[in-house]
C-alpha cells in the first residue's frame, strides 16, 4: 500500500452538519487514482454535500479529508488547479459564447490566451460542439450544455474530475453519448468521482461505488460484487390485480413488496415462476430480469432509489 501512489481521495469520519441537520454522518471512503468511483443514493443521501466538500467549496465539519494528497482547508487552490468539477446545476456563462466559455475558464486556470484557445478547440471537438463554437449557450439542448460543462471541467487537463449527477434530466440518447465521453476519460487514466441516483449509470460506469442513505454509507464494493453479495442473480417481478397473496413470503424466497408489484428474489426466475404456478399463485403479469443495484439498495434500506 505504502509503495503505491497516494489515494486520489481519502475520507475518514467525514462529517458535514448545517446547524442541527446532519448531511454527511461520518463516512469513510478511499478512491484510487484512475478509478471511477460513484456515490449512489436517493435525493438527500448526502452525495452532493460530499461532492461540495471534495470540491473544496464547503468546509468539513469533522473528520479528515485529503484530495490528491492535499488538505482542502489549506491547499484548496492547489487542489482545484488539478481537479475538474461538473456541478449538478448548469452554471455556464450565458453572457459568453460556447467557445468563450472554454477560453475564459482556461484563463481562470492560468493558461495563456494562446494555450486557452488551442485547448478550447480541442475540447469543442471532444464534446462534439465544434459547429456550435460561436453560438450562444442558452439555445443549446440539455445534452449539449452538459457536454460543454464537462468540456469546461477538462480545460486544465485534470487528474480528478467530480461529476455531480451528470446525466440527470437528459434523454437516453444524450446520456449514452455522455457515458461514452466519460469512458474516454477513464481510458486516459483520469480519476472520476460521480454521484447519481440512476443505478444503471452507476453499474455502467463505476469500478467501485458506495451506496449512501441518510448521510451514511450503507455498503460499498464493485457493482457485480454488491449484487452477488446482497441479492440473487435474477428477480421475478409479479403483478397482482388484488394485491399479492398474504403467504407469498412463506415459500423460501426473499420478497419485496412495492406499491405496484412484488419482487421475488430467486437465482433462476423461470424456476420460481413454475414453482409459484404449482403453488396455485397466479399473477396477472410477470417479468424476469437480472438483479441490479436498485435491488441491492432495496434489500439494504427497504426503500427504492428514485421515489
Amino acid at each position: 500500500m505504502s509503495s503505491g501512489p497516494a489515494s486520489a481521495i481519502k475520507a475518514t469520519g467525514l462529517t458535514k452538519r448545517f446547524g442541527d441537520f446532519v448531511a454527511v454522518a461520518g463516512i469513510d471512503l478511499e478512491v484510487e487514482p484512475g478509478e471511477t468511483f460513484s456515490l449512489l443514493g436517493p435525493n438527500g443521501a448526502g452525495k452532493s454535500s460530499t461532492m461540495k466538500m471534495v470540491s473544496t467549496v464547503s468546509p468539513i465539519t469533522e473528520g479528515e479529508l485529503t484530495i490528491l494528497g492535499l488538505d482542502p482547508s489549506a491547499e484548496g487552490r492547489e487542489i482545484r488547479q488539478r481537479m475538474g468539477v461538473v456541478p449538478q446545476e448548469d452554471n455556464l456563462d450565458q453572457e459568453l459564447t460556447v467557445r468563450e466559455n472554454l477560453v475564459i475558464y482556461a484563463r481562470y486556470f492560468g493558461l495563456s490566451w494562446a494555450q486557452a484557445k488551442e485547448r478550447a478547440d480541442e475540447l469543442l471537438s471532444f464534446a462534439q460542439l465544434t459547429d456550435r463554437a460561436d453560438a450562444a449557450v442558452e439555445p443549446l439542448s440539455g445534452g449539449m450544455k452538459r457536454r460543454l460543462t464537462i468540456a469546461r471541467s477538462l480545460v486544465n487537463t485534470p487528474e480528478l474530475v467530480l461529476l455531480d449527477e451528470p446525466t440527470t434530466g437528459l434523454d437516453p440518447q444524450a446520456r449514452h453519448l455522455l457515458w461514452e465521453r466519460l469512458y474516454q476519460l477513464k481510458e486516459q487514466g483520469v480519476t472520476l468521482l460521480l454521484t447519481t441516483h440512476y443505478m444503471d449509470e452507476a453499474e455502467q460506469l463505476s469500478d467501485r461505488l458506495v451506496i449512501m442513505d441518510q448521510g451514511t454509507i450503507v455498503t460499498q464494493g464493485s457493482p457485480t460484487a454488491l449484487i452477488a453479495e446482497h441479492v440473487t442473480n435474477e428477480v421475478l417481478e409479479l403483478r397482482f390485480a388484488d394485491g399479492p397473496p398474504a403467504d407469498l413470503d412463506q415459500h423460501g424466497w426473499r420478497i419485496e413488496t412495492l406499491p405496484d408489484r412484488s419482487l421475488v428474489y430467486a437465482d433462476r426466475g423461470e424456476d420460481a415462476l413454475r414453482r409459484l404456478a404449482e403453488l396455485d399463485v397466479h399473477p396477472t403479469g410477470s417479468l424476469i430480469r437480472r438483479s441490479t443495484l436498485e435491488d441491492v439498495f432495496l434489500a439494504l434500506t427497504g426503500r427504492t432509489l428514485v421515489e
Binding site: V57, P87, E89, N91, L92, D93, F109, N156
Partner: peptide
C-alpha cells in the same frame, strides 16, 4: 441567477 461565481470558485480562483 447565472451562478458565475460558483463556477469560478471551483477553479484556482479564490
Amino acid at each position: 441567477y447565472a451562478k458565475t461565481f460558483d463556477a469560478m470558485l471551483v477553479t484556482p480562483l479564490a
